Computed example of a mutant assay.
Amino acid sequence: MKTSFYRRTALAGLIAITMLSAGAVITPASAQIGGIVHDPRNYAQNILTAARTLEQINNQIKQLQNQATSLVNEARNLQSLPVSTLQELQGQVDRTRELLGEAQRIAFDVGDIQKTFEARYKGASLSGPQAALVVNAEARWNDSVGAFQDAMKVQAGVVVNMGAARQSIGTLVTSSQSATGALQAAQAGNQLLALQSQQLGDLAAAIAAQGRAEMLDAARAAAAEAEGRERFRRFRKGN
């Protein structure tokens, strides 16, 4: 009996091995348990469908997350820079303009300059009395001294503005480095350009004031030379 059982078992295993090696597919049969039919292939198909549906849901969630991140970045790009140095820069420009407006005797005005030069420099009459020559010479000397004083005041104002500009540069560079969006970075850069323009304006003002002083002194020297020749002529004529 045992020998016959072993033979049947061995024969069944041999048949199974032969079918597998030949490429046969063994499909599980439907089972009925407690009156309910269980189909393994249908069960596997349902699991595969559920897995694919879950994958699609995960992809949709990722797309929504990417869209939310994009919206957040766009909102950051629209945020304005919380720091503004415009008022300080305008104050520095106004102070420099005030110093230029305080020019003594001969202002930075084309009409005033032309009128004064005609009266005391270029068109000064050398045929007048000695007292008139002395008055004109003294006026020209006062023009030169006042112009050099004005130039020094403008230069001092520029130096003061340099300290304020240094503070503004530090504030703007820090704000630019911590900018959360493109708009904030661009606004910080624009304010740095405005600061540079203000510094160039101060430099131009200092050069203009210094040039004014030098030109007035050169004009005074030329007028003094002309008066010197006239006085020497009168001296020789008197002798």
Rank of each mutant, 00 (worst) to 15 (best):
N58V: 05
S175G: 15
V173E: 05
I36M: 13
A164T: 07
R8I: 10
A224S: 14
G163E: 01
Q167W: 00
T69H: 07
R7M: 06
G163F: 00
L86M: 09
N58F: 04
L78K: 10
N190M: 11
D94I: 01
T18A: 15
K237S: 13
P28A: 15
N190D: 15
S30M: 14
I61E: 10
P40K: 03
T27V: 10
S178P: 00
R166S: 14
S4Y: 05
L133H: 13
M162K: 13
I207G: 06
L195I: 13
A44S: 10
M19V: 03
N136H: 13
Q184K: 01
D39Q: 08
F235G: 11
I113H: 08
G146D: 04
F235A: 11
Q65W: 00
I106N: 09
A139P: 03
T9Q: 07
A164V: 09
A226R: 15
G34N: 13
K2S: 12
D39K: 02
Y43C: 00
G181K: 03
K122G: 14
L183E: 06
A194F: 14
A179T: 01
S84N: 14
N161Y: 01
Q199I: 13
L133A: 12
Q198H: 12
F117Y: 09
A156G: 05
L99F: 12
A75N: 12
F148R: 12
A29L: 04
D94G: 10
R7T: 12
L89D: 04
R76G: 05
G128Y: 00
Q187W: 03
A185D: 03
M19P: 00
Q199D: 13
P129L: 11
Q184R: 03
F108A: 13
A151P: 00
